[in-house]
Design a protein around this nucleic acid. Structure first.
Length: 710
DNA sequence: TACAATCAGA
């Protein structure tokens, strides 16, 4: 045998031998590594990978047996984090044995999907089953669920229960407890809890503050801030941001400046978020110029800062300035987003610039923001306030998503346009859509009823539906009812209502009543009411003007003169009337006694011409009678100076025949102009829309949509 | 565990 074959034979033998030796099994993937993997999958929402691990565990028979509670809990955690609550629950239910972490993971799952009730149910069954005792993690989850579902009574019971088991000493438990009380219990209970604590750290103050901020209890928030400031604590930037938010909401400039200076002292004013918050705060406190200064000193530029400063101008009612900022924005560097569009559209709405609104609408479509609720709402608002309720309706029905604001905007839009029926229909459709009405919804419908004289419906909404939806009527609602009753001529009821309503009336309510006296020609009551209102609110020019109008309508010229001299004596100035009209992207503004406009002579001539045409139709220029002390010729001249007539005349001159005119006026339209414009709409065959300070008038063919009932 | 920005109204 050759040497070679000997080796071959040996090799062969070994080979056989090797085949007899059992192959070593691949070692199982170490369990702790699997759990780590599951954790990674959970935290990154890798559902597919997590599922494969789950499958692997089932196949290799490493799962679902009693042994590994820890591992199954990781699976629950995986499904919970991937928002697969039902599957998590299946795994949970199959566990023969659970520990407190399993319970807690499942509870968190429900919490994250918004099923707070399930959280509490699970907690109770955990306690009853006696399987495990709650720990501090469970306690925080429970308190948080009570907070977000408003279950304060149950929360109090749990508080007692955790107190007994000694869990309240944990920092996080305390924080969530305080948060719960501040968010859900209006009567300063959180502050009492704070006072009972032996020692408060920053986080517990912070929790109380954010709860109060969130539920809008700013007074209590300020109280917390006061206590916090007394302690010797180092604030972090979350604290500062909360404080800034508090100031914004309280509109407390004094506090605002203190916080700002503290931020400067401790160097917290350099980050872009902080700057944004400061700008916003000054804007909300009515100090645009401060806001502008902070903005100018902020070197970082982004869309939020730009939008915030725009909003500051919007809050200041400087709508033109807000729009200027928009057009000055370098849209390449800082492209506008939904907030920017919303503020711009709202500015346009306040100015009634229909043409600009259309333009911006186009921009919205191009930039792909059309499906944002915020933008949709702003579009509806813009069209409604710019006079085109039809376009508002279109924008509304084109919305993919709607919220309560969308519905309210539409309802209030209908109301402003005197479309009571449509407003109530929108309300019904809103109920069908499952939206819950709030106080503003009811202001909208009550106002709608008031505009068209639906007394019964109005009272039904006020007395029945508001209760049903648990909306507490406030001054604004009560004032709507005063308007509703008195404008319908039911002065006795209005009087009784005002006498018995459990509310402190303000000048607006009295003006509403007074206005109704004027419209309904109840001059006797009107004078009485005006006397009282002037006594009570000696600086409110509105009541003087109304009284003067009443005197004029009842042709008591000396009364008119008296009011005028009283106003002079007290230095009360009436708001000058301003009207404007948009023509080819240009806005033309007219003042009551306008003489600035370059084409003013032509405008006067146009007015003369138009008035001479409508006089044969029954127009007589002394309806308002305000200018009783001048001769006929002069009187017509004076009336023709009214800003809305100037605007309409200019519109007639500058726009093609048949095109509609949209005019906006800052104060209530006067009687004389109202009747003149009715006739102008007839002879010119124009559709004329006038927005005055409280509603829209649509003039067409000699009629006005308000039916002379405004 | 995240908090710099719209909004409807007598």
């Amino acid at each position: 045998m050759s040497a070679l074959s000997v080796i071959e034979q040996r090799l062969l033998k070994w080979d056989k031998l090797a085949s007899l030796v059992p192959k070593p099994k691949k070692p199982p993937f170490p369990i702790d590594r699997l759990n780590e993997l599951l954790k990674v999958c959970a935290n990154s929402s890798y559902l597919r990978t997590g599922e494969s691990i789950h499958a692997h565990l089932i196949v290799t028979n490493q799962s679902s047996t009693a042994k590994d509670v820890y591992q199954t809990t990781s699976l629950i955690n995986l499904y919970v984090k991937c928002r697969e609550t039902v599957r998590a629950r299946k795994v949970f239910d199959l566990m023969p044995e659970r520990n407190v972490v399993s319970w807690c993971a499942m509870m968190k799952g429900y919490q994250n999907s918004g099923f707070d009730f399930e959280v509490l149910k699970l907690f109770k069954s955990m306690v009853f089953s006696g399987e495990s005792r709650p720990n501090e993690f469970v306690a925080t989850v429970v308190f948080k669920s009570c907070s977000s579902s408003g279950r304060i009574e149950e929360g109090k019971q749990f508080h007692g229960c955790f107190l007994k088991s000694g869990l309240m000493s944990h920092e996080f438990v305390r924080n969530t407890l305080v948060y719960m009380y501040s968010l859900c219990s209006g009567n300063g209970e959180a502050i009492r809890v704070l006072d009972d604590l032996p020692y408060c750290d920053l986080s517990v103050f912070s929790s109380a503050l954010s709860g109060y901020l969130e539920c809008g209890a700013f007074k209590e928030g300020a109280e917390v801030l006061r206590r916090m400031a007394k302690e010797d604590l180092v604030w972090d930037n979350i604290t500062y941001l909360s404080c800034l938010r508090l100031c914004s909401n309280l509109r407390d400039l004094n506090l605002a400046r203190q916080i700002h200076s503290r931020m400067v002292r401790f160097g917290f004013n350099s980050e872009v978020e902080a700057c944004g918050a400061i700008i916003n705060m000054y804007g909300k406190c009515g100090k645009v110029l401060y806001a502008q200064r902070v903005f100018d000193n902020t070197h970082a530029q982004n869309i939020v800062l730009n939008t915030t400063i725009m909003d500051a101008y919007f809050q200041d009612k400087s709508f033109e300035e807000a729009l200027n900022l928009f057009s000055k924005m370098d849209t390449k560097e800082v492209p506008p987003n939904e907030y920017t569009f919303a503020i711009s559209l709202n500015s346009i709405a306040e100015l009634s610039l229909l043409k600009h609104g259309d333009l911006l609408h186009g921009l919205v479509l191009k930039s792909g923001y059309r499906n944002h609720v915020m933008v949709g709402n702003a579009l509806v608002n813009m069209y409604a306030k710019s006079g085109s309720i039809e376009d508002a309706r279109k924008a509304f029905s084109g919305m993919t998503f709607r919220d309560i604001v969308s519905w309210n905007t539409m309802i209030c839009g209908f109301s402003h346009h005197g479309l009571g029926r449509e407003a109530l229909e929108a309300f019904d459709r809103m109920m069908i859509a499952g939206e819950i009405p709030n106080r503003i919804t009811f202001i909208g419908v009550l106002q709608a009823c008031s505009h068209v004289g639906f007394v019964e419906q109005g009272l039904y909404y006020f007395n029945q539906l508001m209760k049903k939806f648990d909306v507490q009527p406030d001054l604004q609602h009560y004032t709507c009812i005063v308007g509703l009753l008195s404008k319908a001529g039911m002065f006795k009821d209005a009087e009784d209502f005002m006498r018995t309503a459990p509310i402190e009336w303000d000048v607006v309510a009295w003006r509403a009543l007074l206005n109704a006296c004027y419209v309904r020609r109840n001059f006797r009551l009107g004078k009485k009411v005006a006397e009282y209102a002037i006594y009570k609110y000696p600086n409110d020019s509105g009541v003087y003007v109304l009284l003067s109008n009443i005197h004029a309508k009842s042709r008591e010229w000396e009364g008119v003169a008296e009011v005028r001299s009283l106003m002079n004596k007290r230095g009360v100035k009436k708001e000058p009337g301003v009207s404007w009209i948009g023509i080819r992207n240009q806005t033309h503004v007219f003042l009551a006694e306008e003489n600035q406009h370059p084409e003013i002579t032509l405008i006067y001539a146009k007015i003369k011409e138009v008035l001479s045409k409508i006089r044969p139709l029954g127009y007589s220029p002394d309806v308002a009678g305000v200018f009783h002390d001048v001769d006929e010729e002069q009187r017509e001249d004076n009336l023709s100076y009214h800003s809305e007539k100037l605007a309409v005349a200019y519109g007639l001159m500058k726009t093609p025949e048949n095109s509609p005119l949209y005019v906006t006026k800052n104060v209530r339209i006067c009687d004389d102009c109202h009747s003149a414009i009715k006739l102008i709409s007839k002879i010119s065959k124009r559709y004329i829309v006038i927005r005055d300070s409280n509603r829209f008038h649509h003039f067409r063919d000699g009629q006005c949509s308000c039916c002379d009932y405004w």
